[in-house]
Every structure is written in C-alpha cells, then in structure tokens.
C-alpha cells in the first residue's frame, strides 16, 4: 500500500500501474476521483442492468396485482365505474410507484451485492495508514496475489511514481 500526495499524483500513478498490466489493485480515495475509471482501465458499471430488471419486476407485479385483484378477485364498482382492460389509466400511479420502489431496492441491494458489502472485517483495516483514505489520503493498494506482483520490483515502481509512505499489509 502506498500513499500519494494528491489526486493528480494518484491519477498518473494509476495510469502507469494500469499500463504495467496489474489486475488486482485499487486506489482508495476520500471522494470519487473523476476519470479514475479510465485511468484504471475500468469500464462502465453494470449496476444499471440489475436496476432495469428491478424496474420491470416492479411494473409487472403492480399491473398483475391490480388486474388480478380488481378484475378477477374482487371487482370494485364505485360510482358505476367498471373495471376491465380499459381502466388501465387508473392503474398507472400504482404501477409507476412500484416500478420506482423495486428499482430502488434493486439499486441498493444490487450495489451491496456487487461490492460484496457488508464486510466488516478486511485486512486493510489492520493498517494504520489505511484509515487516512476517508480523510485526505490518496492510497494505492496492489495485492500480492496479482500475477505481476514482485515484492521488490513493485515497491520500486511505487517509489518511482512518487509514493510517499509505503506499507506492507498482511492478510
């Protein structure tokens, strides 16, 4: 794990690490750094696909619920208004709300699923330096599991890129 002095330093370091072909590494920052995805060679998040599924589920559940209960189970006739396929406009608000609701659930649970959170115990939490990330630290972590990782060479690479403190974290 290495600390850099600013977002700019970290950004350029990330580009170099990406070009060096590392796979299992990450940068830890107090806020999302714009453009870091490209600098790390990461694509677009695929969370939106999960949310789309959630939204489709929401609208089908809502339409199914309303048509099934209103048309077949218990048709409510108020003020001589019938319930059939043409009452669809009256079902829009609930359909809309449930679509939003299930999209929101898909977003939050999809996010936690992708990130594998909650995870309260992580080797990085044992490091004293690591807690700086949530204040003003710009950290880069290269895992020793990475096939390109070689203890001395990686350390040299980090130093070359201008890393301040370098710490080894056991896991």
């Amino acid at each position: 794990m290495a600390e850099f002095s600013s977002a700019t330093e970290l950004y350029h370091a990330a580009e170099k690490v990406r070009d060096a072909g590392f796979r299992r590494w990450d940068v830890h920052t107090p806020y999302p750094v714009h453009g870091m995805d490209q600098a790390m060679g990461l694509g677009k998040s695929w969370l939106s696909a999960i949310v789309l599924m959630g939204g489709i589920t929401g609208s089908s559940v809502a339409l199914g619920l309303q048509f099934f209960t209103q048309v077949s189970l218990y048709p409510t006739v108020v003020q001589d208004k019938p319930t059939n396929f043409f009452t669809l406009p009256a079902f829009f608000p609930v359909t809309f709300e449930l679509t939003i609701l299930l999209s929101a659930f898909a977003t939050v649970f999809g996010l936690l699923g992708i990130l594998m959170l909650p995870r309260w115990n992580h080797p990085l939490f044992n490091s004293g330096l690591f807690s700086k990330f949530s204040n003003d630290g710009f950290l880069m972590v290269i895992e020793s599991r990475d096939p390109k990782f070689k203890r001395e060479k990686t350390k040299e690479l980090l130093e070359e890129m201008g890393a301040g403190a370098i710490e080894e974290v056991n896991y």
């Binding site: 990450d26 920052t29 870091m36 998040s45 977003t107 959170l117 990330f133």
Partner: peptide
C-alpha cells in the same frame, strides 16, 4: 458503514447507484 473502503472499484458502482437513485427520485 458496512465496511466501506473507498476503493475506486467500489466508487464506480457507488456513483452509478447514486446516479440511478437520482434519476428515479426525480420523477418520483
């Protein structure tokens, strides 16, 4: 905090989640 580590591999999905929530909250 659910063990948040602020890694960019987390942030990129986090930002997408935030964007989606903003997008669905607006019509909501």
């Amino acid at each position: 905090a659910l063990g948040w580590r602020g890694g960019n591999r987390q942030w990129r999905h986090y930002e997408m989640a935030y964007l989606i929530l903003a997008a669905i909250s607006t019509p909501l």
